[in-house]
Amino acid sequence: MIVTNTETVPGYRVQRVLGLVQGNTVRAKHLGRDIAAGFKNLVGGELKGYTELLTESRREAMQRMLAQAQQLGANAVVNVRFSTSSITAGASELYAYGTAVVVSEGA
């Protein structure tokens, strides 16, 4: 599956546009991570736990989006966008959406 956040894929031609596909997830870290994040405020720096949280959410949301695209019979998802929002402390919502298309090689 070709995934890009551009409208076209160089070297490929869009044959059919299948429509919007989306994936969504809300994830939270366990309390330990939140406490660790609190300690991190002494020195600042990267909060690895929360970075991981975002990575996991993004993977999950993208997987759901790709599954939907596969169901539609697409072989590419173009113009992918992400958006996030906070639901409650320590939890994040990640929403991925894109357009499922069928592409074939050749400009």
Binding site: T6, G11, K40, E46
Partner: peptide, 14 residues
Amino acid sequence: TPTLVCTEVVIASD
């Protein structure tokens, strides 16, 4: 074939 790359970073305040 071009592909999507994603990264995320969280930086704490002090």
